[in-house]
Amino acid sequence: MRITRYAATLAVLGLALAGCSSEAGNQAAESSGSTAAVDTEVQFDAGTTMARLNEAGAITIGTKFDQPGFGLLNPRTQEPEGFDVEIGKLVAAKLGIDADKITWTETVSANREPFIQNGQVDIVVATYTINDTRKQVVDFAGPYYEAGQDIMVAKGNPENIAGPDDLAGKTVCSVEGSTPAQNIRDNYPQAQLTTYDVYSKCADDLRNGNVQAVTTDNVILTGLVAGSPDAFELVGKPFTKEPYGIGLKKGDDQFRSFINDVLEESFQDGAWAEAWDRTAGKITGTEAPEPPKVNRY
């Protein structure tokens, strides 16, 4: 069922929202580039999540605050910046919600599912890998990006770690509740896994020599290496596929298919690639990749 449609007349709400592109919004936009144009003339079927959010003129999005290139809190604006944040803004814009009406809530790996389940956030865009275990409790739109698990080691790779099999007997750090941590537990039990709540602590431990490797999605590691090119390096051989999806409440199929529409549209009209270039692309130094194929399950 197609639910996005443009109304012929200007909704009163739309007018109000259009008037709202205030200073604060521009300020946030300043630091992370431009924001997606807000659709002011949208209308949704009554009773849908889209209609509810549109009516409220506000949305709460869970994202990471500590992931360079994807979601990193800017101390000046106290707003997160990155690719995930831009994707969130794209979705909000199509709901007729201005960027400054988005409430950003920090979701770390360990609380994303409960946050979606209990309605604390409307959607989660937080380097959130789609997998079957998670699908039992939440639903995913997307993917909007495909990452892969990789390994970060100290500069010069003193332990000669070339892949996950070399982690046997080594101490490797990851984050509790993340798929890479679970993957190590399940498939590489000989590696000694240490878990923190955030990757920055893993990076500190690698720097101090407390752990010999840090493992998670390559794009996250790239962000960490970018800050300390003299201390860290990436092994550079991704050994899993981590499709990033937008998490939402289980069973809300209309909302899921709406977000999928938004994503597909942004793949086609270049908004997606533009968001990439402005954020994560700056860190990886690569052109926007081919967008993944949205999976409408």
């Binding site: 599912e113 409960p114 275990t133 923190y196 431990d205």
Partner: peptide, 23 residues
């Protein structure tokens, strides 16, 4: 739990995440 010791609280966080429907 916040400093890489897998004690009860760390396990709580891990299990709460895996069993979000049986908090």
């Amino acid at each position: 739990a916040g400093f890489a010791v897998t004690d009860l609280t760390a396990t709580l966080q891990r299990l709460a995440n895996q069993n979000a429907d049986q908090l």
